[in-house]
Design a binder for these strands. Structure first.
Lengths: 213, 213
DNA sequence: CAGGTATGTTACTAGCGGTAACGCAAGTTT
DNA sequence: AAACTTGCGTTACCGCTAGTAACATACCTG
């Protein structure tokens, strides 16, 4: 156990950092991703330069803020994907985990995934530039998982990566649309997406009296 | 045919507008989405207020700029999806149309789809806020198409919309990743994605000596 | 010729991210 | 005890942005 003034200093610095992050989170969840550094500093009861000393720049603050949520989400997703069950059940569980997180904290989700909502006054958070890494991480992790577990013949690594990113994109886009329109309960969305992945698009019959599809 | 000074004025105004849009396009393709109104005005050889008179605000200019490209892309996609051929062929042709456009004009693509690349100096174009509408439009159009052409039983409308948005998201995410990493030729990516949609994920065998997936 | 209308300018505001320079308190060293 | 370092905090500023108000100029119309 480390003691002495250095340790005390570091621990207070870390506590301070957590306080600042909590203040930033409050502001971001209230004002959306266009929250300004001034506003965050004011919420924390201090002034801008302190924020910059702690986080370097706005991107640093954002990343620190995003990591709190992405790490937890990634862990849940890994668990769902790795649970002992049939393949389809696990795919559904994973989709459901993601969508449940989105449903439970839509503001957090929007902050992580969506660029500044309104004005192009891009002084806000350029979340898009940071959401990409998250989606990329998800895609890469899924790719590794698929490649490890499935026998896909030649080109399996390439195929797995295409699928990893494609499936993550599907989940993301469908979830985004669903969150906005809420056209059905979550379990139904999950089932529909799993149906899509299970080839129901290919197997569907053409509608009578229509050109083929 | 309308004549007289009013018509002349309007036609010169429209020509001016086109000139301004072309200047804006040059700047955006050169400087990325963070191009400033000042830079665009300078490129056009005029000053800011003229831009604002023509396009209202930065978002207006962006929308005018985006429409030029999205309309053409949407038309190509509709044509590919509606061509006389087998379903899988048409799905592949549509994916390929999208990816070919992405491949042919990556800068345009990035402008349409990606928020300001670097600094969070969000004075740039908040493209994310505008790309969403494009992806949404694509998803909705595909949903209508699927619902019209396929016999999906009960809940067909809901199912078609989930699939529409999900497939568009898959295409978008995979294309985005592919554009960055270029891991394989286009036709291979198309085939992999079509395989995914055709249920090859569900049909794949587990790898020997591994937990099931 | 008088008058409106579109086109253009200069000069400005308000707000942003980011930083330099300084004050101050507390603990450490001599 | 005095002097020095070190971290926390401030004020005041920079350069940039989007957007606007006010003014000038040309041109076509009555």
């Amino acid at each position: 156990m480390e003691t002495g003034p250095r340790a005390a200093q570091r621990s207070t610095a870390e506590r301070r950092r957590r306080e600042l992050l909590e203040a930033a989170e409050r502001v971001v969840l209230r004002d959306g991703p266009r929250a300004s550094m001034n506003a965050i500093a004011a919420e924390a009861g201090i002034t801008k330069p302190i924020l910059y000393r702690h986080f370097g720049d706005k991107g640093g603050l954002y990343r620190a803020l995003a990591q709190r949520h992405t790490d937890a989400l990634l862990e849940s997703l890994r668990a769902s994907l790795d649970a002992p069950a049939e393949r389809r059940e696990r795919v559904e569980a994973t989709l459901d985990t993601y969508l449940a997180a989105v449903e439970a904290h839509p503001q957090v989700y929007r902050f992580l995934m969506h660029p500044a909502e309104d004005a192009e006054t891009e002084q806000g958070f350029d979340v898009g530039h940071h959401s990409a890494p998250l989606l990329r991480r998800l895609g890469e992790e899924l790719a590794v998982f698929i490649e490890e577990r499935l026998d896909l013949g030649p080109d399996s690594e390439e195929l797995a990566r295409v699928w990893g990113h494609g499936i993550v994109g599907m989940m993301h886009a469908a979830g985004d649309w669903w969150l906005r329109e809420r056209p059905c309960p979550r379990e139904q969305l999950v089932a529909h997406l799993a149906d899509l992945l299970w080839g129901r698009l290919a197997a569907a019959a053409d509608r009578a009296g229509r050109p083929t599809f």
